[in-house]
Computed example of a mutant assay.
Amino acid sequence: MSDPHLGFIGLGQIGAPMAKRWCDHPGGLTVFDVVEAATAPFAERGAHVAASPAGVAERATVISLMVRDDAQVREVMSGPDGILATASNGTVVIIHSTVEADTPAEIAALCKPHGVAVLDAPVSGGAMGAHEGTLALMVGGDAEAVALATPALERLGTLVAHLGPIGAGTRAKLARNLITFASFAAVGEASRLAEAAGVDLAKLGEVVRHSDRVTGGPGAIMLRGTAGPLPADDGLRPIFEHTRGLGEKDLTLAIGLGAELGVETPVARQAFDQLGAALGVPHRHSLDTDNPDEGDDR
């Protein structure tokens, strides 16, 4: 099992570049996609093309799925031509699709009588990370199955994080995507504010990308093992209290600018309300756009 035969099902925008990183795997690769044209580049590179998920499981003992949604995951696993129709005892199936939080555990329970282990390993890094092999993989599942799958997963990304039992990877991905899309909403609001103020948005985008590379962006404050308030003697507390003060001051100024320019800033107002708790240093505070340097415990 040092070089298990690998399988990949779902050769879309993310799945195809991921699977291509397995084409030179010593144990071989079998692929399947409902779109026949998607498999042609793999056949040209020496991979076996199966006619169904069951055909993949006839050959492969470590199988990745990157399909669209929960329904497709279930069909690929337990449909008439699904993996469980042919999978051998000891097979490991890795679900990369972003699905509902409880789906991986439900699939694992379905597979257990067949001797098939399931991991959930959604990815972060997008198409660029898939092409470059720099994805982050958030893995949930049994340690033995994770150990078996890790050499293959390490070909796909530069960070393979085992986060806990089955389902932990999916829960982590949902939390990670909350950061992404909430940030996008903030970008929309900030762009409207900057545009109304006459700022060049393309150049502002360059500044944001540059500074995020330096500071680490939102992940820079994710240094703690709990989301609760920081103890009084925690070394991070004075740093985060300082960050809270700066943030509340600058958010107040942005909200004030929005009021001056007639730009609504609901994201900024919610950020002002929640910033202290997010940093683990909640406190009594008030929003005063007329006197931005004044307030409770700034």
Rank of each mutant, 00 (worst) to 15 (best):
R59C: 04
R59H: 15
R59M: 08
T61W: 00
T61M: 01
T61E: 15
V62M: 02
V62S: 05
V62K: 01
I63G: 07
S64D: 08
S64C: 12
L65W: 08
M66W: 12
V67F: 14
R68T: 15
R68I: 11
D69H: 09
D69S: 10
D70R: 06
A71T: 15
Q72M: 13
Q72F: 10
V73N: 03
V73D: 04
R74C: 10
E75K: 13
E75R: 12
V76N: 02
V76T: 06
M77N: 06
M77F: 01
M77Q: 02
S78D: 15
S78W: 08
S78Y: 03
S78V: 09
S78A: 15
G79T: 08
G79F: 09
G79K: 10
P80V: 03
G82D: 10
I83L: 14
I83S: 08
I83H: 13
I83G: 13
L84H: 12
L84N: 03
A85Y: 06
T86Y: 06
A87H: 07
A87C: 03
A87G: 04
S88Y: 00
S88W: 01
N89R: 13
N89Q: 14
N89L: 00
T91D: 01
V92H: 03
V93R: 06
I94A: 02
H96N: 10
T98A: 11
T98P: 14
V99N: 09
E100L: 06
E100K: 09
A101T: 15
D102Q: 13
D102P: 08
D102I: 01
P104I: 03
A105Y: 03
E106M: 09
E106Q: 14
E106I: 05
I107K: 00
I107A: 00
A108I: 01
A108P: 04
L110F: 12
L110V: 13
L110C: 11
C111D: 08
C111H: 11
C111Q: 07
P113A: 10
H114L: 00
H114I: 02
G115E: 01
G115T: 06
V116I: 10
A117P: 06
A117I: 08
V118H: 01
V118A: 07
V118L: 14
L119S: 10
L119F: 05
L119M: 08
L119E: 07
D120C: 05
D120V: 09
D120G: 00
A121D: 08
P122N: 03
V123R: 00
G125A: 11
G125Y: 04
G126H: 00
G126T: 07
G126K: 05
G126D: 03
A127C: 01
M128T: 15
M128F: 13
G129N: 06
G129C: 04
A130F: 11
A130Y: 13
H131T: 14
E132P: 00
G133T: 11
L135S: 04
A136L: 00
M138C: 08
M138G: 10
V139Q: 10
G140E: 05
G140T: 01
D142K: 03
D142Y: 02
D142Q: 06
A143I: 15
A143H: 13
E144Q: 14
E144W: 00
E144H: 13
A145M: 09
A147M: 05
A147V: 04
A147E: 12
